[in-house]
């Protein structure tokens, strides 16, 4: 269904993050490798606090000033090495080369500005010239593309007037407005109900399957990984403990953590082992 190639979209080698705190230096991420081919969805799975989000934020250089990100390589196809770029210039990458979809869509949108304004600010930030009218037309098209029935009304409204699913669609529209080649979604469906989750994931994976795009999907839901990803990276305590094609990892998990993780997924018809 997807044109997977051997061409790399993102290649990260030995990414580590250290954060200076008053109680000493902590290392939430210790040497993570991540390879994303063009047209591929790579899942990062692991428990809370295992360093999934920190890895992503480190790549985008969005960690607080007291943290340091190092890597042997963090090559983004069509741009260059992300960590070799001065932080000042990372702005060109964010939004334009790498689209980002966060969890909790309500939190992601500005509560005070109208949705239209948020599309305008995004385009103004990346293009030299864009008129309000052009921006609105593009925004209407983007909202239509993510399946919003009445885009004009959404544009003239505020974030709090949207439902969770609608708000996440708006966030996806914002993240893809500038057609980034790589999309990073950090638990994009946490907090949404199951049917909306499926719609949102179908929507993002649809975006990826347009030619040559790729995605990193951070989640703790193995079901999501199995359904949407081609390859998976299992993280535990700041390290990659296992990686490979989804089929291999799911059927024959090698690392004890992955084995326990897969065993913990409830199966239909299974008796629950609950003491009364």
């Amino acid at each position: 269904m997807n044109a997977q190639s051997e061409e790399l979209a993102l290649e990260v080698r030995n990414l580590a993050v250290s954060i200076k705190t008053p109680h000493g230096v902590v290392h939430p991420v210790k040497g993570v490798d991540l390879t994303v081919h063009k047209g591929e969805i790579v899942g990062i799975v692991g428990e809370s606090g295992c360093g999934k989000s920190t890895t992503i934020k480190g790549l985008l250089r969005l960690l607080p000033a007291n943290s340091t990100v190092t890597a042997d390589k963090a090559q983004l196809a069509g741009y260059g090495d992300l960590l070799a770029t001065p932080v000042r210039r990372m702005r060109e990458v964010r939004g334009a080369k790498i689209g980002f979809v966060a969890q909790n869509p309500f939190g992601s949108l500005n509560p005070i500005y109208k949705i239209e304004r948020q599309f305008y600010e995004l385009q103004k930030a990346h293009k030299t010239k864009v008129s309000r009218k052009e921006s609105r037309e593009i925004a209407l098209r983007m909202l239509d593309g993510v399946g919003i029935v009445n885009p004009a009304r959404v544009l003239d409204g505020y974030a709090h007037q949207l439902s969770g699913g609608m708000a996440q669609r708006v966030v996806i529209a914002l993240a893809t407005t500038l057609s980034p080649q790589l999309l990073i979604a950090d638990e994009p469906t946490t907090g949404l109900d199951a049917t909306v989750q499926a719609q949102i994931l179908d929507l993002i994976s649809g975006f990826v399957h347009q030619e040559g795009r790729s995605m990193v999907l951070v989640t703790h839901d193995l079901g999501v990984i199995a359904q949407y990803c081609q390859r998976v990276v299992v993280m535990y305590d700041g390290q990659v403990v296992e990686h490979g094609s989804v089929m291999d990892v799911m059927v024959e998990p090698q690392h004890p953590y992955t084995q326990r993780l897969i065993a913990s997924v409830p199966k239909p018809g299974e008796k629950l082992d609950v003491s009364r």
Binding site: L62, G95, E121, L122, A125, L174, A175
Partner: peptide, 16 residues
Amino acid sequence: SQQVFFARAMGLPERT
């Protein structure tokens, strides 16, 4: 806040 994080992740300039 998350909205400011998202604003940065969209590549908005610091003054915005």
